[in-house]
Structure formats: structure tokens, C-alpha cells
């Protein structure tokens, strides 16, 4: 099948690539664009390890063709922070031991990022409901939820201080 010329914005940069229509977005991100933060876990839309932020939505990139994402604005874990300057969520995951093996973490943090954008001051129940599309096979949910609540508090405190 002839390759398509795809253009999208990834982590603030305009990127172009060639891909077959049947290539999933997760494959194009990882294998063609070398963005390996989003992981392939179950590859059946259940686990959420491949979660990215696309046009303001949390999306499982194993269940979208890259062709569908042509023209989209995408943020992955790489776009949220880096080792020299961690995102608040990354810091709080570190602080509260919100990861054990770390495999689900990029998806967890990318999903939590959108959750807190939409609901900056969630209850514990709202965090659990909002994170229901992400699985942690170490079952470290308690600390993941703690980390997200701490990040929300931290972000709200920073916002208040700025006012």
C-alpha cells in the first residue's frame, strides 16, 4: 500500500513522516518519530500505557491510525517535562513513589495531565474514576492516586501564589 504523507505537531514541533494507512499512531510515534515515551502494553485499548494527549483529549494511541491523527496537535510524556525540569506530576510521582516498574507511568502521567486540566481540584474518587482507563500491573494505585492529588494541590498553590 502506498505510503501517506502525514503532518502533525508533536510536543510543539511540526513533524512530517511517511506511513502506511494501517500504521497505528503508537507505531508511528515510536518507530518513525523515535518518541518512545508512550508504551505499547496490551495493544487492545485496555491498559492505557500508550496514552497521549491529542487536540486536548486523552487518547489511547494504539487505537488510532496515524492517518486519523494527521493535522493533530499531540503531546506525549516527552513534551510534559525532562530530567532537568520535571513536570509537577512527574515530581509528585517521584515524591510519592507513584511508580514501581515504571511501564505504565508515561500513560498515567499523560492522562493525569488532562484530568487536572479539566478538573484542577479533584476528589480522590474523581481521580480514581478519571484514571480508570490506565492499568498498573504492579497494582500501585494507592500511590498513583496520592501523587496526582499532591500534584493538584501543588499546582493550585502555585496558581494562588502567582495571583
Amino acid at each position: 500500500m502506498e505510503k501517506m504523507h502525514l503532518k502533525m505537531k508533536v510536543n510543539g514541533e511540526d513533524v512530517e513522516t511517511l506511513a502506511e494507512p494501517r500504521e497505528l499512531l503508537i507505531h508511528v510515534l515510536r518507530e518513525r518519530l523515535n518518541i518512545t515515551g508512550p508504551h505499547i502494553g496490551c495493544e487492545t485499548s485496555h491498559c492505557g500505557a500508550c496514552t497521549i494527549d491529542m487536540d486536548g483529549k486523552s487518547v489511547k494511541s494504539c487505537t488510532v491510525f496515524a492517518a486519523q491523527a494527521s493535522g493533530a496537535d499531540i503531546t506525549t510524556i516527552e513534551g510534559l517535562g525532562n530530567p532537568d525540569s520535571l513536570h509537577v506530576l512527574q515530581e509528585m510521582f517521584k515524591e510519592h513513589h507513584g511508580l514501581q516498574c515504571g511501564f505504565c507511568t508515561p500513560g498515567m502521567i499523560t492522562r493525569a495531565y488532562r484530568l487536572l486540566k479539566e478538573n484542577p481540584d479533584p476528589t480522590e474518587e474523581e481521580v480514581r474514576f478519571g484514571m480508570a482507563g490506565n492499568l498498573c500491573r504492579c497494582t500501585g494505585y494507592q500511590n498513583i492516586v496520592k501523587a496526582i492529588l499532591a500534584a493538584a494541590a501543588e499546582m493550585n498553590a502555585a496558581k494562588e501564589a502567582a495571583q
Partner: peptide, 9 residues
Amino acid sequence: IADPQVRYM
């Protein structure tokens, strides 16, 4: 229905 990510799409 499903989970948050699925409901966005």
C-alpha cells in the same frame, strides 16, 4: 461506557 480515553474518541 468504557473508560475516559475511549469516551473522548
